[in-house]
Design a protein around this nucleic acid. Structure first.
Lengths: 248, 248
DNA sequence: CGCAGAATTGATACATCTCAAGCTGGGTGG
DNA sequence: CCACCCAGCTTGAGATGTATCAATTCTGCG
């Protein structure tokens, strides 16, 4: 739970795997050099909490590898995941003192962090960063709103299908695989994490996954390894028109 | 439904009621002058649709007075409100062709619109606009995420209490009233609109409002005029810790 | 091997939806 | 001025989807 927290991973921005999608995507070489002045890497093990809601946050950063989740928790323990952070996603809010949500490493995780003060300063002088951050924030806002439809109006089966279809398509895009044939991927979430994302209980998640399996919409090997024979069928189950409202 | 659509409302930015909260909040007088070159006002009656999802949008703009809602609709008619647009809120996304959501005037509505092309151009040259837009977008993202908790995890009663408490506090802030005493305001939404916002049916909304009334948490005069004797009691019902996660 | 965390499955309870019947208040036309 | 009408709302009774509680079963790992 609390082993190698801060780790120095030797990385040059130039050969960063997410260089072209992250907040630094539009930066020129000299701007990257400036960023590198106050950047550092941190690694977390699956399950570790990166930041607690309400805590002071003296950095912002980007997910380099692995998956993290943003969650809110009520006093009585009910929790809702409000964001799934995949590689290239940005964490933290410039101009705010404390963290608004818990950030938890869902898998092993590496983040590229920037000390907040210098980052904020640089944002003011470097439009490339602010521009890219605005673009990313607008995308996240769209994703959040798309998810509001899922949470507010979809049935349990549609919710599961929505989640699977997002993960499947994300994965396909990342690996640059066409979506004509069957899609194969590993679920990065436990049943409980899925439940927290979908506003369900873990039992309902389990039942609905079994149902989709029974109906041949998906195949399972073990608990996590999923095959989707036909993504358009899955998207039909999700209640999306098949051209696909893309999420997250 | 389709009377006075485009209306010229003579307004100088200088005496605009939302001057200090809108996307132009940080603009200098000369920047305001530049904005005024391509700005115009539009008015809508309650119920009118401002933009249809998917339609081409050749403007962006700010709500000056009245309330609008952002909604998504599934093929079978299920709809979810994904945003409530109050005065000073921004509509539209620079850099995108089509509208992502339906925008509907909930009450009579006046908007201050900017032609999109020149606005986009100006965003590149005027950091004050992009900066403010980023700030506003981050706030909206927070609101959307807060709302995900409401949709995913709260009971019907808590949902209603959450909505009422938001509207009550918003109203109090706008009119600069202290929140010690009883709060009095008019609901800007029909029961159906509330249902669409909360992911409920209108019958459930009605029942829960009656229940809150019966329990003395709120008082009603007519259908819309609400009195909240003690906002902290209402917030208790909403499941928020009483210091208050502020929304929207 | 055996344990612990994760997942599945079952039985039942309950919250919310659905369908259906009235109610209310404000506006319109006779 | 009254009667009517209609959209918005309320209330009721029953159906249904999901949660809850509880018991197994899987799976990976020391």
């Amino acid at each position: 739970m609390l082993k190698d927290d801060i780790v120095a991973v030797p990385h040059e921005c130039v050969d960063c795997p997410i260089r072209h999608r992250a907040v630094c995507a539009r930066c020129e070489p000299d701007e990257l050099a400036e960023l590198e002045e106050f950047k550092y890497y941190r690694s977390f093990e699956a399950g570790q909490t990166v930041v607690w809601s309400g805590d002071r946050m003296d950095f912002v950063g980007t997910v380099v590898s692995g998956i993290a989740s943003l969650t809110q928790t009520m006093e009585d323990g009910r929790t809702q995941m409000v964001g799934l952070l995949l590689p290239s996603d940005f964490v933290g809010r410039p101009g705010r003192e404390g963290a608004a949500y818990d950030v938890v490493a869902t898998t092993d995780l590496t983040m590229c962090c920037f000390r907040k003060k210098p980052f904020e300063t640089m944002m003011e002088t470097t439009p490339h960063i602010a521009q890219r951050l605005l673009e990313m924030t607008l995308d996240e806002l769209d994703a959040a709103r798309e998810w509001m439809l899922v949470l507010g109006r979809k049935t349990a089966r549609e919710k599961i299908a929505s989640l699977l279809s997002i993960v499947a398509r994300r994965d396909a895009t990342l690996r640059k695989v066409t979506m004509d044939g069957p899609l194969v991927f590993d679920l990065p979430l436990t049943r409980e994490a899925m439940a927290d994302y979908l506003g369900l209980t873990l039992e309902t998640v389990s039942r609905q996954i079994s149902a989709l399996k029974r109906d041949g919409i998906i195949h399972l090997e073990g608990k996590r390894h999923v095959t989707v024979p036909d993504i358009s069928v899955l998207m039909e189950e999700a209640g999306d028109d098949s051209d696909g409202g893309m999420l997250v």
